[in-house]
């Protein structure tokens, strides 16, 4: 429901759907302030400069679709407890566009738009919206206690 005009929004990658299932996290949306949705998804570990994951993003017009395999996240952060911030770098564009959802009428998504966690490599991996309505992924090591509290 992108019922507000796109041109007033700062450049970002607007998320429409998130599908955390079958060992991956698929994200669909469209770019705002860039021509094409095709490019590279860059996942950066928060507070750990240098650790990043680059994956191809499919695009059609301004639409994009990315699929993040959980194994890739797990093997890149074997030590556990990490947050990945997601960016899209469209082809021919220098800027990394933050993934987020800002064009609908629901501010404060963190507690409203929630998604199931999946498990991979001893981690519990879950996409979530930050307090700024940007999209990130948490990885937490499965401890006995946490498993029980699930």
């Amino acid at each position: 429901m992108h019922d507000q005009p796109d041109h007033i929004a700062p450049a970002h990658a607007e998320v429409a759907e998130i599908w955390p299932r079958d060992g991956r996290i698929r994200v669909l949306g469209h770019v705002v302030g860039a021509a094409s949705g095709a490019g590279t998804l860059v996942a950066r570990v928060r507070d750990a400069a240098g650790t990043e994951l680059r994956l191809a993003a499919k695009g059609r017009g301004s639409r994009f679709e990315v699929s993040v395999p959980l194994d890739a996240l797990a093997s890149a952060t074997p030590e556990g407890d990490r947050v990945w911030d997601l960016y899209l770098v469209p082809d021919g564009c220098d800027d990394a566009l933050r993934l987020g959802r800002h064009l609908d009428d629901v501010p404060g998504k963190k507690k409203i738009f929630t998604y199931p966690a999946q498990r991979a490599g001893g981690l519990r991996i879950e996409p979530y919206y930050t307090v700024q309505d940007n999209l990130s992924i948490t990885c937490r090591r499965l401890t006995r206690q946490r498993e029980e509290s699930r």
Binding site: E17, I18, W19, V106, I112, P116
Partner: peptide, 9 residues
Amino acid sequence: HLYNHVYLM
């Protein structure tokens, strides 16, 4: 798998 369609507001 209704998290893209049903929201508890």
